[in-house]
Design a protein around this nucleic acid. Structure first.
Lengths: 133, 133
DNA sequence: GTCAGTGCAAACCCTTTGCAGAAAG
DNA sequence: CTTTCTGCAAAGGGTTTGCACTGAC
């Protein structure tokens, strides 16, 4: 079991590895990249027999996102997506289906970011390519 | 009065120029670029003595956005921003204050968009630079 | 007189919060 | 024991919807 690796990952991020946190981290952080919503995580978790609640899933996802284990992606006024791929990359959003796909950082070359007039430091560069039929 | 220019602009966009639509279009489309929310439009309108409702403001803003007179900008799970600048351009979002500022298209050079693997056509490229203190 | 447009309130979706019970050390 | 975590239900913010009324041709 890679359970101990998951636990280590949580501890390394400053998160106490409780039952729910380990369970959700196992679902989300040990497989391949995926885009989930709070709702979809509740479904997936229950399907796997993990007894939990909406509130706890939100708590956990927000914690994971705040400490960098997940990335929040906002595409519309609907639910927030959480991306298990935390590398620098971009997104393609299919407006018709609501599906979201990754775009590796190499797919786009963006120049000029450092020259942007601003006060404060850049905490993220979100790029969403919207596509429809 | 530039009222007739506003009416022409609505008609040209396929929108029947009713009382509320002309009033809001006058507020939004005749001055300089601004970022508004449904809520802020209700306030501004009432301040100017325009009697209207939340529902009508949403209806109107959504219509304007759907026909290209306004641009929707989604920055977080809060209210949707409507941008009166419909030119191709990007945004800087100040996470601490919730303020949004424009970034002219020339500020960033983005290469590779046309080569993105996709099905369907690109309806928008949203770029948000997130900044915090 | 017809039909779109408007306003109000209720409904809606997603998310957060308050609080009591459970679990962990 | 104490403290944090969890789950439920209720509240919250933003947006949309249902429906009756208004108003323009």
């Amino acid at each position: 079991m890679a359970q101990n690796i998951i636990v280590e990952k949580l501890v390394a991020s400053g998160i106490k590895p409780t039952r729910i946190r380990v369970a959700l981290a196992t679902l989300l952080l040990s497989g391949k990249d995926q885009h989930v919503t709070a709702d979809s995580v509740v479904s997936i978790a229950r399907q796997k027999g993990i007894r939990t609640s909406v509130a706890s899933v939100y708590n956990t996802l927000n914690q994971f996102a705040d400490c960098g284990l997940l990335k929040r992606i906002i595409v519309d006024q609907g639910p927030v997506f959480f991306d298990t791929n935390t590398d620098n990359h971009y997104h393609v959003y299919y407006e018709d289906s609501g599906k979201l796909t990754d775009l590796p950082a190499e797919a786009l070359q963006i120049a000029g970011i450092d020259e942007i007039p601003r006060t404060g430091k850049i905490t993220g560069v979100d790029v969403i390519i919207r596509v429809s039929a």
